[in-house]
Design a protein around this nucleic acid. Sequence first.
DNA 1: TGAATGATGCGCT
DNA 2: GCGCATCATTCAT
Length: 199
Amino acid sequence: MSRVKPVTRLPRSFYNRSTEIVARELIGKYIILNTSEGRKAARIVEVEAYIGEEDPACHAACGPTIRNALMYGKPGVSYVYFIYGMYYCLNFVTERKGFPAAILLRAAEPVDGVESMRHTTRHEPDHRILSGPGKFCRAFGLALAQNGLDLTGSILYLEDRNEQSPEIGVSTRIGIRKGVEKLWRFFDSGSRAVSGSQR
DNA sequence: TGAATGATGCGCT
DNA sequence: GCGCATCATTCAT
């Protein structure tokens, strides 16, 4: 007798907790995007936490601005920003309203809609298509139009497929100049889709 | 296998 | 004007 594993959509209460805990638990969860183009899904294997005004690498380090206002808002919302003149990065807002924190999605493994993602990179094996925050957004077609989406809605949301938890690796964050010492990068140490090195 | 570099535009001071 | 939570390419070892 086979039992179907329960699949649950992550509720807002999941995001309304300590960002470090949420980031660690996001590894192995699934991100789903439904658009007129079709459905895309991927398994999250790498994230970074950006926590509060005391974190010099956090966009909220200089206090609230128009740009980072979403990080001060309610948890369970997407925060998309444009960087380096070419790339978008997707974040999930965490913690209570008024406390600015978010989790950057850095890498994932393609699950559904792989064909449409493959067109965004050239000569890459499947497990590298989503291996980087800019590459992920490009493959998923995410841009500023997807900024501020409610992750408890039906367009963009995360799923817990109740799989066995992967082995979690921890390291310093990548690509930042301030706040380098914080061990706030979490990844699935068994996944080839993790960006860069695994140390 | 790793380090250096150019492309590129927006938000902030 | 400067700096940036990047990527792909080039050049060096």
